[in-house]
Amino acid sequence: TKVNWYPPKIPNRFNQCTIKVRMVQWPPFVINVPNGSWSGPPRSSRGIEISLLDLVAEFANVRMFYHHDQVPDNWGNVYGNGTITGNLKYLYQEIDDIAIGAYAISMKRCLVFDAVSYHKHEKLIFYVPFQTLNSKLTSLGEIMGFGALVLTLFLYLVVTTMSWLVSRHDYTHYQKFDTCAFETYQILLGLSVSLQPRSTKVRFFIAMLIIYSFYVVTAYQTLLTSTLANASTKQEISTIEDILD
């Protein structure tokens, strides 16, 4: 009953033992760590993996000796014929104790080395917050909002009905309500029509619709172009709570 079932798995009795760490300068894992430097208090400015090893050194009472190869970015690899190159070769020959610098776990490497993943993926991936376009597209509703839409529909129905009623001496195209409505709808969209009205009364109402359509289309396109050309950005991250979220 007096047995401790959960003793400390890592005893604090290593007496400042030196552990050789061969590194590859590769932010954000290893950031500007001088060659031949030693571990110290954990600092985030030296990189993720350096900070983790500094924490281990402080906890286990050891000293990490950080050094790198003369060949830059000399990670090395394990090949199918058994050849080992780069920093992994020093690790295989037990010249070094640990190799760091954004190493990925592979099947061939696991047959030779012990790999400890400190993240659920092969590498710890950093994301930056995206910036949302804070454009003025919402102001487009001022033109084609509910009120403008009702006004346009009302004017379209009035012009179509009046053009149809006064089209006794015009083309048969305008004397039928369905074809007359199709023509006026094309004019409302700013499109060309196949038959231009020839009677003065029909031309009067069609001219009203052309003028209205011209101003609406011009204002809409002008505001749309101005909005797309003057988009701004909105800051997404401003507090620590935003980062945690």
Results as ranks from 00 to 15, higher is better:
residue 126 F to M: 02
residue 127 Y to L: 15
residue 127 Y to Q: 10
residue 128 V to R: 08
residue 129 P to F: 01
residue 132 T to S: 14
residue 132 T to F: 04
residue 134 N to E: 15
residue 136 K to S: 01
residue 138 T to M: 03
residue 139 S to Y: 04
residue 140 L to E: 03
residue 141 G to N: 04
residue 142 E to V: 06
residue 143 I to T: 09
residue 144 M to Q: 05
residue 144 M to G: 13
residue 146 F to Y: 14
residue 146 F to T: 05
residue 147 G to M: 02
residue 149 L to F: 14
residue 150 V to I: 08
residue 150 V to F: 10
residue 152 T to W: 10
residue 152 T to K: 12
residue 152 T to R: 12
residue 153 L to P: 02
residue 153 L to Q: 03
residue 157 L to W: 14
residue 158 V to C: 14
residue 158 V to F: 02
residue 159 V to D: 00
residue 160 T to N: 00
residue 162 M to Y: 04
residue 164 W to L: 01
residue 164 W to C: 08
residue 165 L to N: 13
residue 165 L to I: 10
residue 166 V to N: 13
residue 167 S to Q: 05
residue 168 R to S: 15
residue 169 H to G: 06
residue 170 D to V: 00
residue 171 Y to G: 10
residue 171 Y to F: 10
residue 173 H to F: 06
residue 174 Y to R: 06
residue 174 Y to N: 07
residue 175 Q to P: 14
residue 176 K to S: 13
residue 177 F to Q: 09
residue 179 T to G: 04
residue 179 T to M: 08
residue 179 T to V: 04
residue 179 T to I: 15
residue 181 A to G: 08
residue 181 A to S: 11
residue 182 F to I: 10
residue 183 E to W: 12
residue 187 I to C: 06
residue 187 I to Q: 00
residue 188 L to K: 12
residue 188 L to F: 08
residue 189 L to H: 02
residue 189 L to S: 01
residue 189 L to A: 03
residue 191 L to S: 03
residue 191 L to E: 14
residue 192 S to E: 15
residue 192 S to G: 15
residue 192 S to W: 11
residue 193 V to E: 11
residue 193 V to D: 01
residue 193 V to A: 09
residue 195 L to M: 09
residue 196 Q to T: 04
residue 198 R to I: 13
residue 199 S to H: 11
residue 200 T to G: 12
residue 200 T to V: 14
residue 202 V to W: 02
residue 202 V to A: 09
residue 203 R to T: 09
residue 204 F to E: 06
residue 204 F to Q: 04
residue 205 F to N: 00
residue 206 I to H: 09
residue 206 I to S: 10
residue 210 I to V: 06
residue 210 I to Y: 05
residue 210 I to H: 06
residue 211 I to T: 02
residue 211 I to D: 14
residue 211 I to H: 07
residue 212 Y to M: 04
residue 214 F to D: 00
residue 215 Y to H: 15
residue 215 Y to W: 12
residue 215 Y to Q: 13
residue 215 Y to M: 12
residue 215 Y to T: 13
residue 216 V to M: 03
residue 217 V to R: 13
residue 217 V to T: 15
residue 218 T to C: 11
residue 219 A to I: 03
residue 219 A to W: 04
residue 221 Q to G: 12
residue 222 T to W: 13
residue 223 L to M: 12
residue 224 L to W: 11
residue 224 L to H: 02
residue 225 T to S: 08
residue 225 T to A: 07
residue 227 T to P: 11
residue 227 T to K: 11
residue 227 T to L: 07
residue 228 L to Y: 05
residue 229 A to T: 13
residue 230 N to F: 07
residue 231 A to V: 12
residue 231 A to L: 11
residue 231 A to T: 12
